[in-house]
Nucleic acid binder design. Structure first.
Lengths: 143, 143
DNA sequence: CAGTATTGCTTGTATTATGCAAGTATATTA
DNA sequence: TAATATACTTGCATAATACAAGCAATACTG
C-alpha cells in the first residue's frame, strides 16, 4: 500500500497509516507478549518475516516513535528496541484484536493465549494497565 | 502482502490475515461510523480507494463473513453490504484504535470523532454495545 | 419505448511493496 | 587472529496496489 501519509484526517486512517500493516503489529506483539527486543529475536517468529522487511518496519516504527532504539553496552552488535509510551498506548486495542482473533480462531489458538484473554475479559482496564507496567519494567505478558 | 493464510496459529496473526490491511478497516469504518452500504458509497471516501481494490476487498470481507451482500429490490444495481455479527465483534477493537488515533492525531481529527471517543472512554462496554445495537438496526455512530 | 445516465464492476498497464537469496560490515568469541 | 555471530543491505523475482479506461446491467427520461 502506498504509505504516503495524510490521505485524510480520520483517526482510524492515522492509526492505519502508522501501524496498520501485518508486520508492524506482529513486531509489537513480539514485544508485548514475548518480551523480544533485538533484530534477531524478531526475525525468529513463526511468521518468518524477510530480513529487509524487518529492517524497514523497525525503522518505520522508530520514526513513528512507537519504538525506541538504543545501543546495548553488553554487546554492541545487538541494539535494543523498546516500546515507547505511544506504543504502550496500543495495548488496549491490541488485546481487543487478540480477543477477536481468539473468538474466531478458537481451536487453533495456543491455550496460554486463550487463558490470558479470559483473564483480560474479566477486567480489561486492570489487565491492560498491569501489562503496561510489566512491559515498561522490561517484562512481557508471557514471561 | 502475500495473503496466503495460515502463517501461524497466533490469534493476532489470524486477525491480521482476516482484516489487517488499510482498506478493509476503512470499509468497516464507513459502515460503523457513517452507515454506508453500497459500492458507490464506499468509493466516495476521503481516502480515494481504487475501484478494483474496493471490489477485491469487499469480496474478501464477504468471504471472511465479516460482510454480507444482499440484493436490493428497490434498485437492482445497488447491492447492499451489511456487517455480520463477526464484523460487529470488531467494534471494541475498532474504537480502541480510534481512541489511539485521536490521542496522537488530536489536532487534525474532526471534532465529532473526538467527542464520540470522549463518550466512549467514560463507559466503553456500554457505548460499544449501544453502537452494535444501532448498527444492527441499520444505523451508525454518526447518523 | 428508445436513448441516456447511473451503478458496479472488470481489464490493462504502471508503480510500489513484499519475498527470497546472497552478500557485507562490525562486534564478539575461541 | 581466525572464526563466528549479528544486523543489516543489495539485487532480483513476484505480488499487491494505483490509475485510467471500458463494459454490462439496470434505471431514468422524453
Amino acid at each position: 500500500m502506498k504509505r504516503k501519509a495524510g490521505k485524510s484526517n480520520c483517526a482510524i486512517n492515522y492509526s492505519l497509516e502508522t501501524f496498520g500493516d501485518m508486520w508492524s503489529l506482529l513486531i509489537i506483539r513480539d514485544i508485548i507478549l514475548f518480551g523480544k527486543h533485538t533484530y534477531g529475536e524478531f526475525l525468529d517468529s513463526d511468521e518468518r518475516i524477510a530480513t529487509n522487511i524487518l529492517a524497514s518496519k523497525l525503522s518505520c516504527l522508530v520514526s513513528a516513535e512507537i519504538l525506541h532504539k538504543s545501543s546495548n553496552p553488553a554487546d554492541k552488535r545487538k541494539d535494543i528496541y523498546t516500546i515507547t509510551e505511544k506504543g504502550l498506548a496500543l495495548i488496549p486495542m491490541f488485546f481487543e484484536m487478540m480477543e477477536w482473533g481468539v473468538k474466531y480462531n478458537d481451536l487453533k489458538t495456543p491455550k496460554e493465549a486463550v487463558d490470558f484473554i479470559k483473564k483480560f475479559k474479566k477486567n480489561k482496564i486492570k489487565v491492560a494497565q498491569e501489562v503496561m507496567e510489566k512491559v515498561r519494567a522490561g517484562g512481557s505478558v508471557f514471561s
